[in-house]
Amino acid sequence: MLRQLRHEELDFVQNAPVRLVFAREIAAPPDAVFTALADDVTGWTDWFAAVTRAEPVEGGSPGRLIRLRGGVRFTESVLAADRPERYAYRVDATNTPGLRALVEEWRLDPAGTGTRVRWTFAADGPAPFRGLLRAARPGLGRSFRDAVTALDRRLAKG
């Protein structure tokens, strides 16, 4: 069963109790990366190994239904889709114990002919949960690097 999380806005990316930020440069141009993030929701399963299902939903605002390996589920609301610089979303409901609020932001900056992709994972929960998230930083970083590398390969194939 999913439970509702606290609804945060974009400023949470800057002031969350836990902020994990990862960055990597890839060859794909920002607009192509933005399209993969924001427009090709179902395609996330092709390049982000942790995502087993992704589908867009429309309601009062655009959103997504996400399933991750291990059975984690999220319903999300898109907070920003500023082509081609930023894509951000808030998790509205999840089955993850301890999580109180989560906002993720993808920033895309030109880097030569490619893109510098920066992912911010901003979260809140009780102290033990925050400590667990901080301890998970290396794994989340590896997941991000692998995903962005796979996305770059996918976009290079066309």
Rank of each mutant, 00 (worst) to 15 (best):
residue 69 R to L: 11
residue 111 A to P: 04
residue 157 K to E: 15
residue 31 D to R: 15
residue 149 T to Q: 14
residue 66 I to S: 00
residue 64 R to H: 06
residue 28 A to N: 04
residue 53 R to E: 11
residue 18 V to Y: 01
residue 12 F to A: 03
residue 121 F to W: 14
residue 10 L to F: 11
residue 26 I to W: 01
residue 78 V to C: 08
residue 105 E to M: 05
residue 33 V to S: 00
residue 15 N to W: 10
residue 91 V to F: 10
residue 44 W to L: 11
residue 81 A to G: 07
residue 142 R to G: 08
residue 34 F to E: 01
residue 151 L to W: 08
residue 41 V to T: 14
residue 18 V to C: 09
residue 157 K to M: 14
residue 99 L to K: 02
residue 74 F to Q: 02
residue 65 L to I: 13
residue 127 A to C: 01
residue 28 A to P: 07
residue 70 G to A: 10
residue 133 L to Q: 13
residue 133 L to V: 12
residue 97 P to F: 02
residue 83 R to N: 13
residue 57 V to N: 01
residue 121 F to A: 02
residue 158 G to Q: 06
residue 87 Y to W: 13
residue 97 P to I: 03
residue 27 A to G: 12
residue 24 R to V: 01
residue 132 L to V: 06
residue 81 A to Y: 06
residue 156 A to R: 14
residue 75 T to V: 12
residue 128 P to Y: 00
residue 148 V to L: 12
residue 79 L to G: 08
residue 6 R to W: 00
residue 131 G to A: 10
residue 82 D to C: 09
residue 120 T to I: 12
residue 86 R to P: 00
residue 108 L to T: 08
residue 67 R to V: 00
residue 148 V to P: 04
residue 123 A to T: 08
residue 156 A to M: 11
residue 155 L to N: 09
residue 48 F to I: 02
residue 82 D to G: 07
residue 1 M to F: 06
residue 95 N to P: 05
residue 113 T to H: 14
residue 35 T to W: 04
residue 123 A to M: 11
residue 44 W to G: 04
residue 125 G to Q: 09
residue 77 S to Q: 13
residue 55 E to F: 05
residue 117 V to I: 11
residue 108 L to R: 10
residue 13 V to S: 12
residue 150 A to Y: 09
residue 122 A to N: 11
residue 51 V to H: 07
residue 44 W to Y: 05
residue 62 P to S: 10
residue 49 A to S: 15
residue 2 L to Y: 03
residue 4 Q to W: 01
residue 99 L to P: 00
residue 74 F to M: 08
residue 23 A to Q: 15
residue 98 G to P: 01
residue 121 F to G: 01
residue 26 I to R: 02
residue 135 A to L: 15
residue 48 F to N: 09
residue 7 H to S: 10
residue 126 P to L: 08
residue 24 R to H: 10
residue 153 R to F: 05
residue 103 V to Y: 04
residue 116 R to A: 10
residue 22 F to L: 02
residue 47 W to H: 07
residue 32 A to E: 15
residue 30 P to A: 09
residue 66 I to K: 05
residue 100 R to F: 00
residue 104 E to Y: 00
residue 96 T to E: 13
residue 92 D to R: 09
residue 153 R to Q: 14
residue 67 R to N: 11
residue 72 V to S: 14
residue 85 E to P: 00
residue 118 R to G: 03
residue 122 A to E: 00
residue 40 D to K: 05
residue 80 A to K: 07
residue 136 A to D: 02
residue 110 P to C: 07
residue 72 V to R: 09
residue 2 L to C: 10
residue 60 G to L: 11
residue 79 L to C: 06
residue 148 V to Y: 05
residue 9 E to P: 03
residue 135 A to K: 13
residue 71 G to S: 05
residue 94 T to L: 03
residue 5 L to C: 07
residue 63 G to V: 06
residue 74 F to S: 01
residue 141 G to Y: 11
residue 149 T to C: 03
residue 18 V to R: 08
residue 139 G to M: 14
residue 114 G to C: 13
residue 69 R to D: 09
residue 68 L to T: 05
residue 5 L to F: 04
residue 149 T to D: 15
residue 137 R to G: 09
residue 76 E to N: 13
residue 147 A to N: 08
residue 153 R to P: 00
residue 103 V to E: 08
residue 86 R to H: 06
residue 40 D to R: 15
residue 55 E to I: 03
residue 112 G to F: 04
residue 19 R to H: 04
residue 30 P to Y: 06
residue 31 D to V: 15
residue 17 P to Y: 07
residue 90 R to Y: 04
residue 101 A to E: 02
